[in-house]
Write a protein that binds this DNA or RNA. Structure first.
Lengths: 227, 227
DNA sequence: GGAAGACAATGAAAATACTGATCGTCGAGG
DNA sequence: CCTCGACGATCAGTATTTTCATTGTCTTCC
């Protein structure tokens, strides 16, 4: 999944890019409207995150130009102003959703996923599977071996991350930044505790065990026990 | 598939047309009620997108006249926010669905496709269902287990949103922007209160409970309780 | 066996949600 | 013009869930 970010403010832009890359997306970041338009026209993106306030060509014009050129990818608008008009304008010009700054990264990620899911109409994106575990993204429900399991928000986020990157060993620092909005503070064991609780719910009493810990590295979710 | 758009505001009209053309439809766009009526009468369309506020002949009259002349094609109404009466009137006059401005284009496209898929035959859109709950958009009436329930405007809007996106967990920010015209102000609990009142009316004393809260996420309306 | 990391259990604190009451606003009817 | 009632927003208090630090034990690897 390829995403274009058009954001002039360096900090915000870098932050967004890093977060989305860590979430497993392929991300391009440009700093102004002209570049945004150019990239949007010449490359193929599954989604664009577009700031309204841009030097030179503003976000609306970029959007307008892209739509005129027949580009249909979903666009998520970032508006700094609290004004309803901005939002109206954005939506009328063909934006699919908007977010008012400042926002939590997790909020953005959720919207991005919703838009991608809707656009793709891809059934597989609505649920993630591993062995007899199913995670229903829409209903935010989890079942294992047909049995419903209640997860807390954090547990759900953690499991979602593990499932999306299944087979990959996820370092603690990555998990910390994706599930918690924090930079890994080594003097805490939140992650261990969270993993433990998650295991208690989805692995205890079931086979095979899905969450494996890789000593000194992090955690992986994998379907097959490789003996 | 041929679609007629009747919309006076140039920008909106252009974008609708552009988008629908790109989506593969054959689109005619006219700017006022008279033209709308004329085109609608003389040509054959599979669907009409009709703005309410039009110079000269307003949307209702256009719709009324078309229906009187025996035109049965589905009509999607565009109405301004807050004008509850407009929506009711539109549905009573034979519209098949409505959309409140401002809306995301993707939303319009989804509704258009739904209407076309269903064809002009059954206008099920004027009622939404879930379990033994029925929401009659036309009469603005709600019944559960055959028992009539009175809802206020906000309660109705909230329930309508939940029903239209049934099965989806709706984040509070989304609810805030759809039902209230605000950007989610975390220091208010309007939503909780509204949900509470809605629950009191449609869930208290009935089974199954339809509105489920997903802590830290939002609310879902779902028909099946999976224990 | 020792050290480092992983796991488990607890409880207090924080965050989140629910509820009933109150208050202001607006429109209808007197 | 005033009153009343319905509605919706806000508040405050309560209940609940969730988080996370602490503590201690266990496992693994050297």
């Amino acid at each position: 999944m390829k995403i274009l970010i058009v954001e002039d403010e360096p900090k915000t832009g870098d932050y967004l890019k890093q977060g989305l890359v860590e979430a497993g997306f392929n991300v391009d970041l440009v700093r102004d409207g002209m570049d945004g338009l150019h990239f949007g026209m010449t490359d193929v993106y599954d989604l664009i995150v577009l700031d309204v306030m841009l030097p030179g060509l503003d976000g609306w014009r970029v959007l307008q130009a892209l739509r005129k050129a027949g580009k249909e990818m979903p666009v998520l608008f970032l508006t700094a102003k609290d004004s309803v008009d901005d939002r109206v304008k954005g939506l009328e010009l063909g934006a699919d959703d908007y977010l008012v700054k400042p926002f939590a990264f997790s909020e953005l990620l959720a919207r991005v996923r919703t838009l991608l899911r809707r656009g793709a109409k891809n059934k597989e994106v609505d649920a993630l599977h591993a062995a007899d575990l199913e995670l229903d993204l829409l209903r935010r429900r989890v079942t294992r071996a047909g049995k419903r399991i209640d997860l807390t928000a954090k547990e759900f986020a953690l499991l979602e991350l593990l499932l999306r990157r299944r087979g990959e060993v996820l370092p603690r620092s990555l998990i910390a930044s994706q599930v918690w909005d924090m930079n890994f503070d080594s003097d805490t064991n939140v992650i261990e505790v969270a993993v433990r609780r998650l295991r208690a719910k989805i692995d205890d009493g079931f086979e095979p065990k899905l969450i494996r810990t890789v000593r000194g590295m992090g955690y992986v979710l994998e379907e097959q026990e490789c003996e």
